[in-house]
Design a protein around this nucleic acid. Structure first.
Length: 469
RNA sequence: GGUGCUGUAGCCAAGUGGUAAGGCAACGGUCUGCAAAACCGUCAGCGCGGGUUCGAUUCCCGUCAGCACCUCCA
């Protein structure tokens, strides 16, 4: 039984899918006008982990996400660089895939671009106008926020307390075209030459930001979704507006469970483009050869809480993840001399820890608690690896369990790929001979020699154990 | 002004009305030719002040501090 924290009701609820065994999940994707930063990555990682846990739990997940490929930022960027909006979008969509692949973020079942659903968007807007929820004004089309009962509930905003322009970003000219400051654009007129636009019943223009998610989620998942996710900053106004548009059109509940991830902070401040305190994943990966550490770091804090990002945090995460990898490696080494058989007592402990892991993840994806169970499995692995005799079935079970549980966090490989290396094998053989002859000077020299080649050798009761640095 | 979130050991981070998981670091020990790895042990009374309670870190009130959102934001 999985419980999720629903932002809409502000409490944990037992998750019940619309269709047994299947999940309709929509997660807001980025505007592709630049490389994604670590904060964007957290959102992608958080929902990838949630998706993976649902899959691990036996659900079939239909995961739909979007790329916003037409909006002010993309247009501005295109103007600055003297290229088309599409060129900007294509470049950063590509970059998104290049950045998320090393992080082992599964591709969405369907990834839609806003510009791919323009006809559907126009239909949607026409429906809203027909139902009197939207109105045209000088080529723009606005949604009547106050007309929609329940507007603002998601973000717990009282309409009368909302301070128009509190963020200091209101456009006076646009305000003049609205009936009410709370109204938001579902369609924006666009008459500048050289700027992307589409013909519509209201003249040339382009979609407002919020409308695409309502259109795509409905197109690919239906009127009601099981889960809608995104960063907590999207709760208002983006998700609030999505609810208003979608429910105004269909008259049906839009989303059963709203899940929002917390921010990545830098020195306790939100990582953002505007503050300039961001690290792009592109740059991070260019300077860091172990992307799984980033996945691990994100698993060390529950997804709704803020997480601080810094090089020292990354380093701590690397050390912690290494402990898991080392335990896995230590026991893997014993597969070479394991005997047939099974250890019932240890099997039972493994089963109990898997249950502990599931309990943690079932509780709103409490990854830090789940990791506690993983660390206990690691201790079992290390302890077992020190045994005189290791039984193969149990060792396999322990190793497989570790791999499976970590894969939910996107960390699917706990050891580097073992590649054949005759030279290394030869040095190890020479060292073994030296040790057999108690020629420790030679043995130590060979150990140093191996280290210069990036190979660490450890001596155990069962012989030499080695791994790459 | 409104709405929320956060404050737990040197660090990261769970959690519960009955005396606080896990990891990192540190220290001590075991094992080891040495080393490494591992294992064992030690290490907090939960921002502050009240209240409720037999008992609060956990509930309530207040307070301090930090952060976020209020139509750019994951």
């Amino acid at each position: 039984m999985i419980k999720v924290y629903n932002t809409y009701t502000r409490q944990k609820e037992v998750f019940e899918p619309i269709t047994t065994g299947q999940i309709r999940m929509y997660v807001c994707g980025p505007t592709i006008y630049n490389y994604i930063h670590v904060g964007n990555a957290r959102s992608a990682i958080a929902f990838d982990t949630i998706r993976r846990y649902f899959e691990y739990s036996g659900y079939d997940v239909n995961y739909v996400s979007n790329f916003t490929d037409v909006d002010d930022k993309i247009i501005n960027r295109a103007q600055e660089e003297g290229v088309t909006e599409k060129e900007i979008a294509d470049k950063y969509a590509q970059a998104f895939y290049e950045d998320t692949a090393p992080l082992n973020i599964k591709p969405a079942t369907t990834r839609s671009l806003a510009t791919e659903v323009i006809p559907e968007i126009i239909d949607f807007v026409q429906d809203l106008i027909a139902k009197d929820y939207a109105y045209e004004s000088q080529g723009d089309v606005y949604f009547r926020s106050r007309k929609f009962r329940g507007y603002g509930i998601l973000a717990h905003q009282d309409l009368n307390e909302l301070v128009a322009g509190a963020s200091g970003r209101l456009d006076d000219e646009e305000m003049a075209r609205k009936e009410d400051a709370l109204d938001f654009a579902v369609w924006k007129s666009e008459n500048r030459t050289g700027v992307i636009s589409w013909e519509s019943p209201w003249g040339a223009g382009r979609p407002g930001w919020h409308i695409e998610c309502s259109v795509m989620s409905q197109k690919y998942l239906g009127n009601t979704l099981d889960i809608h996710g995104g960063g907590i900053d999207l709760a208002f106004p983006h998700h609030t507006n999505e609810i208003a548009q979608s429910e105004a059109r269909t008259g049906e509940k839009f989303v059963n469970y709203w899940l929002h991830n917390g921010f990545v902070n830098v020195n306790d401040e939100k990582m953002s483009k505007s503050l300039g305190n961001f690290t792009t994943v592109h740059d991070l990966l260019a300077n860091y050869d172990d992307p799984m550490v980033i996945r691990y770091l994100m698993a060390t804090t529950q997804y709704r809480k803020p997480i601080n990002y810094s090089e020292s945090e990354l380093e701590r995460a690397r050390v912690e993840l290494d402990r898991i990898r080392t335990g896995y490696r230590n026991l893997t080494f014993r597969l070479t001399d394991a005997v047939d058989g099974s250890d019932d007592a240890l099997n039972a402990q493994i089963t109990a820890l898997v249950a502990q892991y599931k309990d943690a993840m079932d509780d709103d994806f409490n990854a830090p608690n789940a990791l506690a169970a993983v660390f206990e499995l690691v201790t079992l692995a290390n302890t077992y690896a020190d045994n005189q005799t290791v039984q193969r079935t149990t060792a396999d079970k322990l190793l497989t369990t570790l791999t499976t549980l970590m894969s939910v966090f996107g960390i699917e490989t706990l050891t580097g790929a073992a590649q054949e290396d005759a030279e290394i094998e030869n040095l190890l053989a020479q060292r073994q001979t030296a040790r057999d002859n108690k020629d420790f000077a030679q043995s130590d020299a060979l150990r140093d020699e191996l280290k210069t080649r990036g190979v660490v050798v450890e001596d155990t009761a069962q012989g030499q154990r080695w791994h790459k640095l």
